[in-house]
Design a protein around this nucleic acid. Sequence first.
DNA 1: ATTATTGTATTAAGTAATTAGTACAATAAT
DNA 2: ATTATTGTACTAATTACTTAATACAATAAT
Lengths: 126, 126
Amino acid sequence: MEWEFTNDRPVYIQIIEELQFRMVTGFYTPGESFPPVRTLASEAQVNPNTMQRALAELESQGLLCTQRTNAKTLTEDREMLENLKKEMAKKRIRSFLGEMERLGFDRTNTIQLISQIKETIDKEVR
Amino acid sequence: MEWEFTNDRPVYIQIIEELQFRMVTGFYTPGESFPPVRTLASEAQVNPNTMQRALAELESQGLLCTQRTNAKTLTEDREMLENLKKEMAKKRIRSFLGEMERLGFDRTNTIQLISQIKETIDKEVR
DNA sequence: ATTATTGTATTAAGTAATTAGTACAATAAT
DNA sequence: ATTATTGTACTAATTACTTAATACAATAAT
């Protein structure tokens, strides 16, 4: 999996989001051990401290569990992961609709636009 | 108009986005003079340097025009503004659909979700 | 003509994010 | 028992962002 960062936001925040994506989409298995800080850091090509900062945040959210000096594990609370997933979706929908509305597109309008622009986006992605 | 900044991104970037929103939605009139750097800075409660940095960026994008020491003006190129507006919408749609897809919602699914969640969001906003 | 305004530039300082390098205790692996 | 791995903590240095405080030339306003 590729790690890509933009420079318009702190890297550790982008790491948190990337890991949350992975957590709720089954990239990592609930209850299973998580890659070590150093491994993740070298994969993402950031300093271990930066990765550690992100992991600490995820742990304080209850997503990562750590039993002392053993490897961290992803929470086995699948409901928590499911809720996070819903929250992530809702948050994005809310922000998206808000910005589209400010650009002059109401919800109906936005939905139409999404359908219309579908093919164009597909082309661009290819 | 209220200026609000989050601390997860550089302020000058948030200023650029806010001003772009204003430019494409008729908050400022094309061809007309733009508020002075110092005024904008005090309105947004940031340092003039920070505002200046944002304005310089907008000028390099061709959105702001400056005739030497006179006030800057918003471009009178309405087509440019219209294109920017479309680009802003497309960019947001693309990113939104991409993230929703990663969360497991395809376009059709996402559209349904937007319609379903409509009322909930309205409630929250009230 | 004089004054105020405007864009622009400069230097210094402060803060936050990131990197670099190291260290240590606890567990796992051998 | 010894070694490797892991989480964690720490200090220092660097870079980017932001603020602070000026300064100056060109135009507008008076």
